[in-house]
C-alpha cells in the first residue's frame, strides 16, 4: 500500500513541493533507465566491483603481499580460489586489493578531469573571443599528444607511483571534456532562455554555473562513463610499463605485466586480472550507453 502511494507521489503530474518535483524527475529517469536491461547489468557489475574493492579486507582469504614461494603458480583450488602468482601470493586477494588501486585511480582521475574540462569548456564557449581562442589552443596542444606518450613523459618526470599515474592520466584526459562542454555551451549560449537569465541581471559566473553547466552535465556524464574503460586501460598500460603502481602494490595492469611470461603454461595467472579489466570496462561502457539514452533529451 505504502509502496503504491509512494509511486503515485513520485509520478504525480502536479507535484506540491520543490522536493517532490525533483524526486519525481529522478524517479522518471530511473524508470527509463530500468527498461534498458544491459545498462542495468552494467550498473550492477560496477556496484558489485566497487563493493568488492571496498570490503577487500573482509573478503580476502590471504594477505595480498604474503609470499609462499613453495606454492607459486598454483592453479585455482579450494585454498587459492584464483590460484597463486609467481611469488606464491593469492590471486583472489590480490585481485580484490588491486581493485581498490585500479578503481580508485579511475575515480580519482574522473574527479580531477570532469570539473576541469567542464569549467574550461563552458567558460571558453560562453565568453567567446580571445579567452575562447587561448583556452581552446591550450586544449589542442594537450589533445595533439598521443595519450600514453604524454602520460609516460609526465610519470618519467615525476617519480613512478599511483599518485603520479593519476595526475598524468588526468592531464591527458581533460581536453575532450573541455571540447565537449564548449560545443554544448556554444549552442546553449545563444538560446532565448539564457538571454532571459541574462535579463534578470545575473552575473556571468552565475549564468555559467547555474544555467549553462547543468545543460552540459548529461553529455559529460555519459562521456565520463565511456571514458572509464580507457582510463583503466591507460592505468594498466602505465602499470604494465612499470610506471604506475609499484610492484608490491597489487594493481590489475601490473599484475598482468609481471605475469605475462606465464601466459602459455600457467595462463590463469595473467588472464584473471585481464578478465577483471575487461569486465570493468564492459560494465562502464554498458552503463554509459544506458545513461546516454536516458539523459540526452535529444534522443527522446
Amino acid at each position: 500500500m505504502s509502496a503504491t502511494t509512494r509511486r503515485e507521489w513520485l509520478l504525480s503530474d502536479t507535484p506540491a513541493s520543490r522536493a517532490q518535483a525533483r524526486w519525481g524527475r529522478r524517479y522518471q529517469l530511473w524508470l527509463a533507465f530500468r527498461r534498458n536491461w544491459l545498462a542495468v547489468a552494467g550498473l550492477l557489475i560496477v556496484v558489485a566491483m566497487l563493493l568488492l574493492a571496498i570490503f577487500a579486507p573482509l573478503l580476502a582469504t590471504h594477505d595480498p603481499g604474503a609470499q609462499q614461494l613453495a606454492n607459486r603458480l598454483q592453479p585455482p583450488s579450494a585454498a587459492h580460489w584464483f590460484g597463486t602468482d609467481e611469488l606464491g601470493r593469492d590471486s583472489w586477494s590480490r585481485l580484490l586489493y588491486g581493485g581498490r588501486v585500479t578503481l580508485g585511480m579511475v575515480v580519482a582521475v574522473v574527479i580531477l578531469v570532469a570539473p576541469l574540462g567542464l569549467v574550461v569548456g563552458c567558460v571558453a564557449g560562453y565568453a567567446g573571443g580571445l579567452l575562447d581562442k587561448v583556452l581552446m589552443r591550450v586544449t589542442d596542444v594537450f589533445l595533439a599528444f598521443p595519450r600514453l606518450i604524454l602520460a609516460l613523459a609526465f610519470v618519467a618526470a615525476m617519480k613512478p607511483g599511483v599518485e603520479s599515474a593519476v595526475v598524468a592520466i588526468a592531464l591527458t584526459a581533460w581536453p575532450p571534456y573541455a571540447r565537449l562542454a564548449r560545443a554544448e555551451t556554444l549552442t546553449i549560449r545563444n538560446t532565448d532562455y539564457i538571454a532571459a537569465v541574462r535579463m534578470t541581471g545575473a552575473s556571468h559566473w552565475r549564468v555559467i554555473w547555474k544555467h549553462v553547466t547543468p545543460m552540459c552535465m548529461p553529455s559529460l556524464t555519459v562521456r565520463v562513463t565511456l571514458d572509464m574503460s580507457s582510463i583503466i586501460l591507460t592505468a594498466a598500460g602505465l602499470g604494465f610499463l612499470g610506471l604506475g603502481a609499484q610492484p608490491p602494490i597489487p594493481e590489475w595492469g601490473t599484475m598482468i605485466a609481471t605475469a605475462r611470461r606465464f601466459i602459455l603454461e600457467q595462463w590463469w595467472v595473467p588472464v584473471i586480472p585481464g578478465i577483471a579489466i575487461f569486465t570493468a570496462s564492459l560494465a562502464f561502457n554498458l552503463l554509459g550507453d544506458g545513461l546516454r539514452d536516458v539523459l540526452d533529451p535529444k534522443q527522446r
Partner: peptide, 15 residues
Amino acid sequence: MVFQDPYGSLHPRQT
C-alpha cells in the same frame, strides 16, 4: 523582456 518563443525562453531543466 518577454521573448517570442515560449518553448525556447524557459530553461528546460528548471521548474
